[in-house]
Design a protein around this nucleic acid. Structure first.
Length: 597
RNA sequence: GUCUCGGUAGCUCAGCUGGAUAGAGCAACGGCCUUCUAAGCCGUAGGUCUUGGGUUCGAAUCCCAACCGGGAUACCA
């Protein structure tokens, strides 16, 4: 039982004894004592003043007396205004430290057979262009969220729905066919997803030229957009694709394969992966069937032009189209099919969609539609809605080339990392491979931490010139602290200092050491809150606080050169456990930590 | 128009289930490497928490309104 729970129970009793009142434990506000005051845990006593009918100070003193007498861990207390600061005996903190040291996966709750199965969908790329910074935020959030849910004792299936069909895919295909001259990733050396993306851009350029020409020849803008040969070609291609025209299918398969090969490289670089991949080309027909079933059952309705609709006015929403007048499916249709298949494939307890907040309406509607179709899981879908990444000049647009490409960004950061590392020269003795691995680890640490430390709900700004930082509240700062701890531990071993993991409970603990033990003790709380709130940012912020605390300690106090052997051992044990906690915490963010840097 | 999310230091962000004097990093300025890694540490300066009301012993935090910004809003995904 944690000290906090014990104190809560005793406060309830104290109120009953002193003021003859039964209180609800939600009235009990405990917080960590602010550093400028003496104490470890603070009770806010204002809510009890009404019961005691005494001043806040007197009330606090009475409760403090009771706790001091009845809770052995409460050594003493002091009162500042309406705040009761409790000083917890250092034996308790020693026992916490000892238990951290003896716990293999400190802070992590392993899943059991009866754990909930959570499916997390993330990434969900289109196969017509390479991944950009927006996708990076999605991928990092999805991966980290999965890790955090696992650490909270859930079973997690990571999934990806690949949007591999549709008019946008046909645009790239058409452009390649028209103007590609047989270019392939092999004969150009261009990464597959980039090559296909180039043709997506090419399509747009040619399309715009054609429109301009048609307008010169007297067509209206609307007509020109419809009649431009490029657009007609792409449409024709989509029809051929749906009709399973062999040549078109062949082209589609070839170009998609280029993209997948490219994506795999990017995913591997980012360190994200999936347990199960769904393809829209395989689920959209199922969605169509479901919509038609809904139509037959009277859940949906059909207009004269034979398009199919859902009426959501009773839910306070609009009408939503589910099948176009030509019978082809829309985004929503596919998501219905994909959802159904997933719940058939897995015993899912919770479905989480990691998708940008521009889709809030979409998922609200999806949930209602699935419910209307009789799927009991419909209401329980969770849209993990995150904010957009913006550039100083505004939103990113693939077609206009105002995107920060994922591969370029990572490569650029690795380059900065390499330069910095070489200047500092701390990797001497590493093989070129080891050094390269470390540069990459640091670069990705910087990128991932930069993105994950921000509250997922909020939109964030990425400034290419300023955001690539390796100092301050950054991933490399945390990685550096870890490497520093490892260095200390290596040196201790070199000097033949054996670390005794079990600290004597009577050992006097210094103030700064105590702060660190308390910080380590907060880790499981941070993991739980991150899980409850679906927020990797809470883990990032926690680690930053811990690391700052450690660096202050490091500068102020000697560790291996401390002469008192007991104190030296205590500091080594603390350093080791801080390192352990950093490593576990960063793992939840998908960030690795280096032994040296 | 309607719905929705946001507005905290020059910049990027914490803090938001109400609690003590609103915190970090970057940028600026000044210190600290012949003791364990200076990608670090310490210090100076920087705030009407958009504005106005309300609830409360207590509001950056909750409620209402206004202003500003992002997003969505029936056949793009």
């Amino acid at each position: 039982m944690s000290i906090e729970l014990i104190i809560r129970d005793q406060i309830v009793e104290a109120i009953e004894k002193c003021y003859q009142q039964q209180i609800d434990s939600s009235l009990i506000q405990l917080q960590n004592t602010r550093k400028e005051f003496e104490g470890d845990i603070t009770l806010v006593v204002f809510p009890f003043v009404r019961m005691s009918k005494k001043s806040p100070e007197l009330t606090a003193a009475e409760i403090g007396d009771y706790l001091q007498q009845n809770v052995t861990e409460v050594e003493k207390y002091n009162v500042v205004k309406g705040f009761l600061n409790l000083v917890i005996a250092s034996e308790y903190w020693v026992s916490v430290l000892n238990s951290v040291g003896s716990t293999a996966n400190y802070g992590i709750t392993e899943p059991t057979d009866s754990s909930k199965l959570v499916m997390v969908e993330y990434s969900s790329p289109n196969t017509n262009k390479p991944l950009h910074l927006g996708h990076i935020r999605n991928n990092l959030l999805g991966f980290s969220l999965s890790e955090i849910l696992k650490a909270n004792g859930n079973k997690v299936v990571k999934t990806n729905i690949v949007n591999d069909r549709g008019i946008h895919i046909c645009k790239s295909m058409y452009a390649w066919k028209m103007w590609g001259n047989g270019e392939t990733p092999e004969n150009t050396g261009i990464k597959g997803d980039h090559l296909v993306g180039n043709y997506y851009v090419k399509f747009d350029q040619e399309y715009k030229k054609e429109i301009a020409t048609l307008i010169e020849h007297g067509q209206t803008k609307e007509d020109a957009e419809q009649n431009a040969p490029a657009m007609q070609g792409a449409r024709e291609m989509l029809l051929k694709w749906e009709a399973k025209d062999p040549e078109t299918i062949e082209l589609w398969k070839m170009m998609n394969q280029w993209v997948y090969t490219g994506f795999d490289v990017t995913y591997k670089e980012l360190g994200v992966d999936f347990d199960k991949i769904y393809y829209e080309s395989e689920t959209y027909l199922c969605g169509k069937d479901e919509v038609l079933r809904g139509l037959a059952e009277g859940v949906f309705y059909q207009k004269e032009d034979s398009s199919v609709w859902a009426d959501l006015t009773a839910e306070g929403l609009d009408q939503k189209i589910l099948l176009r007048s030509d019978g082809t499916s829309v985004y929503m249709t596919q998501d219905i099919g994909t959802a159904k298949e997933r719940f058939q494939d897995y015993p899912i307890d919770k479905m989480v969609y990691v998708v940008g907040n521009e889709q809030n309406y979409h998922f609200q509607v999806l949930s209602i539609l699935l419910d209307k179709l009789g799927f009991e899981f419909g209401k329980g879908l969770h849209h993990f809605s995150y904010g957009m990444v913006e550039l100083p000049q505004g939103k990113m647009k693939s077609r206009e080339g105002t995107v920060v490409d994922a591969d370029d960004l990572v490569a650029g950061m690795v380059e900065v990392s390499r330069k910095t590392s070489e200047e500092l020269g701390k990797l001497e003795g590493y093989t070129p491979e080891q050094a390269a691995e470390t540069y990459k680890m640091i670069a990705l640490g910087a990128l991932k931490y930069f993105i994950l430390k921000v509250d997922p709900k909020k939109s964030m700004l990425f400034n290419p010139e300023e955001s690539i930082d390796f100092n301050g509240n950054t991933g490399p700062f945390i990685q550096y602290t870890y490497a520093r701890i490892r260095s200390v531990l290596r040196k201790a071993a070199d000097r033949g200092i054996a670390i005794n993991q079990t600290i004597d409970s009577k050992l006097q603990i210094g103030k700064k050491e105590l702060e660190l033990i308390k910080a380590i003790a907060q880790f499981p709380v941070a993991v739980k809150e991150a899980g409850d709130n679906y927020s990797p940012a809470l883990i990032a912020n926690y680690i930053y606080e811990l690391v700052k605390e450690f660096n202050q300690f490091y500068h102020e106090f000697p560790i291996i050169i401390e002469e008192n052997a007991d104190v030296r051992n205590l500091r080594l044990v603390i350093a080791e456990n801080v390192g352990k906690t950093i490593k576990t915490g960063m793992k939840l963010l998908g960030i690795d930590v280096p032994e040296r840097m």
